[in-house]
């Protein structure tokens, strides 16, 4: 188990290093940051001096080494645009994105799994057919369209929910939360549904197809032949066997929710990291972009690590392979 964890950690470190290299190389080609930072009347000498001060004249290898060293200490430099440390920008924006993503994920899981189980067990009921039709809509409509539709219905026509922003937030230490105020919760509903709808339909369909497969297996037939009740068979024996692929996908999708909240945040003007990233791209703000990329990669790696450890917890057979390898 320990060897398994250490090996996974080592692999994770290699992934992070590769992403760092790509982030570094990529963003050297997005344009000259100096042009974005200074006005037209800045002299060449002043530009040169700024370039020197930011270390942009050093050899590439030195710059990369410095980048890695700083990133490892959670220091991504100063934003070219707003002239403040990138880490404090992220600290300001991260809670908004995190709360949005988590709410969306809960929405997706708490509705998706029961719907998947239900449609898997009651294949031909009209409710199953309804769920599947709805999930088809969720899969095929693009996020921005869903967002705009929801705004049109609930904010413009019915006027019950806000169409943009986070509402009132409460500050707890360095974390700002919208979960403790009524307006914050109301503001969370539409973006969370927008962001989570696709994931929910994905989970529903995945759980359904896994249930259909597992319910055909011999051990389910045998469990019924042993006289176990429907609940024990469906939830105890069948659902647990569907969890490995489901957890894999949910894990990957959780990363995706955080990383690609960009569109939802843009539609709802949600003050999170996605919005920050879009603004950084528009201004060629390299430190912010590379920090964002690294952070997202880190989240993916972290989630995958957790998923791998969950496998071991769920499936005893993985324990064996983990020990032998």
């Amino acid at each position: 188990m320990l060897a398994f964890t250490i090996r996974r950690l080592f692999e994770a470190a290699i992934v992070m290093l590769t992403v760092a290299l790509m982030a570094f190389v990529l963003f050297r080609f997005v344009g000259d940051p100096i042009n974005q930072m200074v006005g037209q009347d800045t002299s060449l000498a002043e530009r040169e001096e700024l370039r020197e001060r930011l270390g942009l004249n050093d050899p590439v290898l030195v710059q990369f080494g410095r980048f890695i060293w700083n990133a490892a200490r959670y220091d991504f430099g100063i934003s070219y645009q707003v002239k403040r440390p990138v880490t404090s920008l992220i600290a300001e924006r991260f809670p908004a994105t995190f709360e949005l993503a988590l709410t969306a994920a809960f929405f997706a899981i708490l509705l998706g799994i029961p719907m998947g189980v239900y449609t898997g067990i009651h294949r031909d009921s009209w409710l199953s057919k309804l769920f599947l039709s709805v999930s088809l809509i969720g899969i095929s409509l693009p996020t921005f369209l869903i967002g705009i539709l929801l705004i049109y219905v609930f904010a413009v026509q019915l006027g019950v929910l806000p169409s943009f922003g986070r509402g009132e937030v409460v500050r707890i230490g360095g974390w700002t939360t919208g979960l403790l105020t009524a307006s914050g919760l109301k503001a969370l509903i539409l973006p969370a549904i927008t962001l989570g709808l696709f994931q929910m339909t994905l989970v529903t369909r995945l759980v359904r197809s896994q249930m259909l497969e597992v319910l055909r297996t011999d051990y389910i037939k045998f469990a019924r032949a042993r006289g176990l009740g429907d609940r024990a068979v469906n939830f105890g024996h069948a659902l647990k066997n569907t969890l490995i692929p489901v957890i894999t996908i949910i894990g990957l999708q959780l990363g995706a929710i955080i990383a690609f909240a960009i569109i939802t945040e843009t539609v709802f003007q949600w003050p999170g990291m996605g919005l920050m990233f879009i603004q950084a791209v528009q201004n060629a703000d390299i430190p912010v972009m590379s920090a964002y990329l690294l952070l997202v990669a880190f989240l993916f790696v972290l989630i995958n690590l957790i998923v791998d450890l969950l496998y071991v917890w769920i499936d005893p057979r993985v324990r064996i392979y983990g020990r032998e390898a």
């Binding site: 297996t217 011999d218 051990y219 037939k221 045998f222 032949a225 042993r226 066997n241 499936d315 005893p316």
Partner: peptide, 17 residues
């Protein structure tokens, strides 16, 4: 009524002791 199936490899749920 007890039942015994053909394939013992698949009759038992792999995730439970």
């Amino acid at each position: 009524i007890g039942m015994v199936f053909q394939d013992p490899l698949t009759s038992l749920n792999p995730l439970y002791r």
